[in-house]
């Protein structure tokens, strides 16, 4: 039986669930999509999202590049012996040495190519880790607040408010002074970013949970004796996944640019730790005389942030559980 045609009810039934209109090919082959899991459907939808796939491709490329930096970078930027300090200091971009000096070199003779490949490690490590921990904390806190409501909600949301109003730079400086003897380490940056980031996710998750909480399927699950923990994580969370994942991807992009900003201001990673942000900051100390050291990390930062936004966009469409096309 073709649902779309011979069962007039199903059309009407769909409407309360759907956020998008009926797709034109809905009637065409309802049975074929029926056996697919939601995950498979999401993947199919993501694959059809061209920009999302481009963004995903770029991200996968960058992550692989970061992971395999020791193998692919022309030199090890943390090993002075592998840099050509005398021959290549402040070398301008040139086509003569293959990939190595394609983007030039800094005053220590480290090729910008290597800075970018190695710098991707800390840039991506910090932003991914900090965002993922923020999301985990935010989901639990926001989920509990939204699910239980009442005084639990009020209490947790006051805490969230406090964290939302924390001045980011001051927190970083205080943390560096107290825990890092004045220095910011990678771990410290990750922790500070987590402290600064989780409250946004918590507020978002709380909002979706508040509305999903009062949905009848939540009540139906309770009415058959499903435990609260299971309702929160198995029943409600998957329905709130779309905004959370989208916020997480955007959070990664935000953390990447914020990390670059604190590096630029000199509060971020300290030499020799190198990220795209520190590479970018370097040249400003040189009055932009060696512009190439600034421009190329900047270009990569921009490409990455744009790619992540594309992925976020693609995920947002792909995870729309109600749409069928």
């Amino acid at each position: 039986m073709a649902i779309g045609e011979s069962d007039p009810q199903s059309r009407a039934v769909l409407s309360p669930f759907r956020t998008t209109g009926l797709s034109p090919n809905r009637e065409a082959d309802p049975i074929a999509t029926r056996q697919l899991t939601q995950l498979q459907l999401a993947w199919i939808r993501l694959r059809r999202h061209r920009l999302g796939m481009i963004g995903l491709g770029v991200m996968i490329f960058l992550v692989l590049m970061a992971i395999f930096a020791p193998l692919i970078a022309p030199e090890n930027i943390y090993d002075p012996n592998s840099n050509d300090i005398f021959g290549a200091a402040d070398k301008a971009p040139t086509l003569h040495d293959g990939l190595r000096y394609l983007f030039g070199a800094d005053n220590l003779g480290r090729s910008v190519t290597s800075l970018i490949i190695w710098g991707a490690r800390y840039t991506l490590l910090i932003s991914f880790t900090a965002t993922i921990t923020s999301t985990l904390i935010g989901v639990v806190v926001g989920g509990v607040a939204g699910f239980y409501g009442g005084w639990v909600d009020s209490l947790l949301m006051r805490v969230v408010d406090v964290f939302l109003t924390l001045p980011a730079l001051s927190v970083l400086l205080v943390a560096a002074a107290v825990f890092g003897h004045g220095n910011t380490t990678v771990l410290l940056v990750i922790i500070v970013f987590t402290v600064l980031g989780w409250a946004y996710i918590a507020r978002l998750v709380r909002g979706s949970f508040l509305s999903l909480r009062s949905m009848e399927f939540t009540e139906a699950a309770r009415s058959v004796g499903v435990s609260n923990a299971r309702i929160i994580f198995r029943h409600i969370l998957p329905n709130a996944l779309r905004p959370v994942l989208v916020a997480t991807t955007l959070g990664i992009a935000g953390n990447i640019s914020f990390e670059a900003a604190i590096d630029f201001l000199g509060f971020g990673l300290q030499y020799p730790d190198t990220s795209w942000g520190t590479a970018l900051a370097f040249a400003s100390q040189e009055q932009f005389r060696v512009w190439w050291v600034t421009v190329w990390p900047g270009v990569f930062l921009t490409i990455t942030i744009v790619a992540i936004n594309f992925v976020g966009d693609g995920l947002s469409d792909a995870l729309d559980v109600r749409s069928k096309n």
């Binding site: 039934v13 309360p16 669930f17 939601q38 949905m215 009848e216 399927f217 009540e219 139906a220 699950a221 009415s223 058959v224 029943h235 998957p238 329905n239 559980v321 109600r322």
Partner: peptide, 14 residues
Amino acid sequence: SMIFQEPMTSLNPV
């Protein structure tokens, strides 16, 4: 156990 008023929304869409 209980049967709810709204069969449209009483099942989890995911």
